[in-house]
Design a protein around this nucleic acid. Structure first.
Length: 518
DNA sequence: GTAGGGTTAG
């Protein structure tokens, strides 16, 4: 294919393109591209074209790279894969998938690029599906593939998948104690699957640990409410000479936040700049606002937002609004909501939060104003949803208020029975957890059909008595469900583990691992 | 001589 030009000419242009991509100079790159057209004879020169595609992709001009690629009569696997990755990186998995499907001969790297792409774009089911297809087609896998698969399992929080992964890692002959990337991914997976003990086992046996492994483990402890362990690990890492990064600080501050450790959090926040030379970013401020707000120091939190040196974003105001919900503070909620509606006009969650805050204060007029605003913007609430992993690959889903499940008759019976039993130990439905202005009977009906209660009923019907009941859900667990779960763990002797959108609750003997603070 | 990797608040 290089008939018309001698190798050195191709080599020169290729080197020029490389220099442009390293120097981030797209103008020079374009000029050089034009020159190759002027000189001519490079139409079928894969060597030149591949480096040209690479340059455009690296400089963020994906469509230009794609055009060069499309015009090539013969394309090679490397550019093909490079484009798949580029589409995945900008979140366009549809284009990535189209390219992948057209690829005539797919190798391990191309498959891995797709699996990883799905995992990185919050499509864990697609990632796992593709990985299974990859295996069925007899494609080899290595530890890079596994890292994507492990990350997908972490997102699903599916413990049965995590057992399956353990087998695959072993079969591959990969030793997580020696591979720091696989080890770190496993730590995250076990933590997110509710098994912080196994996460620590991986961490503990690793021969080499870096900032990723430490940050993952600290964040794992934070998720499970083990704030002291998280802080201890943080100090250990510093003593070992491993420099914490921005992510590490988010993990430590989250740990403090979820355990009401205000002073420790303040000290660590101050040390970021003083000791580690990292200036706190907007996310770190969001953590601090969360820390203060969760502890009920709403005025302090507001003051911090108003005096912070960088522009607060939706996350910062959102953390404040969330705390206003916990402490029913409508005044500060209003301030936070006004900013949020400006910054994130279409984020449904903010409207729901504000509406719920008004509802718990009994301000039904304000509730309907917010609801009207939502209707005008045609924002639809995404329903509360819980799911349960019955066996590997089989997931049962439950939606709030939805009684169309084939076993919902039995489930209803179980829930009524539990409710009666709970009365005798002092449980009363918490009407404040219902954000609608309806009568008490209707409130009771709404409460008893919250998705996690439906899942619990299904679990009690179908899971062996000696096994814990695992439930995952998409939104924060409400006060009523929380005390309901505490009570059920007491009267049935069952262990119930719920992963909400943020963290884990382990219910056992009438108590929750979060100490009723979440 | 070129393609695929882990941690992030609400």
């Amino acid at each position: 294919m290089r008939k018309e030009n001698t190798f050195p000419v191709s080599f020169t242009f290729s080197a020029l393109f490389k220099a442009c991509s390293m120097g981030l100079d797209v103008n020079l790159g374009r000029q050089t591209h034009a020159q190759t057209i002027l000189i001519g004879g490079f139409d079928n020169d894969l060597y030149v074209k591949n480096s040209l595609i690479e340059m455009y992709v690296k400089l963020g001009f994906l469509e230009c790279g794609r055009k060069v690629f499309d015009e090539l009569p013969e394309r090679d696997l490397i550019s093909w894969t490079e484009l798949i990755v580029a589409y995945a990186k900008i979140g366009d998995m549809e284009s990535a998938g189209e390219l992948f499907d057209q690829l005539p001969l797919k190798d391990m790297v191309a498959w891995t690029a797709m699996v990883t792409g799905y995992a990185q774009n919050a499509k864990p089911r697609e990632a796992l599906e593709l990985f299974e297809r990859m295996q069925n087609e007899g494609v080899k896998t290595d530890e890079v593939t596994l890292v994507g698969v492990i990350s997908a399992c972490a997102q699903l929080g599916a413990a049965k998948y995590s057992n399956w992964i353990r087998g695959i890692v072993k079969n591959l002959g990969c030793d997580p104690t020696r591979c720091v990337v696989v080890g770190s991914a496993l730590i995250d997976m076990y933590s997110k699957c509710g098994n912080v003990e196994d996460a620590y086992k991986v961490f503990d046996t690793m021969e080499e640990r870096n900032v990723f492994s430490y940050s993952s483990m600290i964040s794992g402890f934070a998720m499970h409410g083990c704030a002291y362990a998280a802080l201890e690990l943080f100090h250990e890492m510093v003593n070992m000479g491993i420099k914490p990064n921005r992510v590490t600080f988010i993990a430590v501050l989250t740990a403090c936040s979820h355990s009401r450790m205000v002073e420790q959090g303040r000290q660590i926040f101050a040390s970021m700049e003083e000791k580690f030379g990292i200036s706190p970013g907007v996310d770190h401020y969001a953590c601090m606002v969360d820390l203060l707000g969760r502890a009920g120091l709403l005025e302090d939190a507001l003051k911090l937002v108003e005096t912070m040196p960088i522009e607060p974003n939706g996350g910062v105001w959102g953390a404040l609004l969330g705390s206003c919900r916990t402490y029913s503070n409508t005044d500060i909620a209003q301030i936070a909501a006004n900013h949020l509606f400006e910054l994130e006009p279409n984020a449904i969650g903010n409207y729901i939060l504000l509406s719920n805050i008004y509802a718990s204060a009994g301000r039904w007029n304000d509730v309907s104003t917010v609801r009207k605003l939502m209707r005008e913007k045609d924002l639809r609430k995404n329903p509360g949803c819980s799911w349960m992993e019955v066996k590997k690959g089989v997931i049962e889903e439950f939606f709030a208020g939805d009684m169309t499940h084939p076993r919902s008759g039995e489930m209803k019976h179980v829930l009524e029975h539990l409710q009666n039993g709970l009365k005798s130990i002092g449980y009363e439905p918490n009407m404040n957890s219902v954000a609608y202005d309806v009568n008490d009977e209707e409130k009771r009906r709404i409460l008893i059909t919250h998705s996690e209660k439906l899942a619990l009923a299904f679990g009690l019907l179908s899971i062996n008595a000696d096994c814990p009941i695992w439930i995952m859900k998409n939104i924060r667990i409400c006060e009523d469900c929380h005390s309901f779960m505490c009570g059920v763990s007491q009267i049935t002797g069952r262990v119930i583990i719920i992963r909400d959108n943020l963290r884990f609750h382990h219910f056992h003997d009438g108590k929750c691992s979060c100490g009723n603070f979440w």
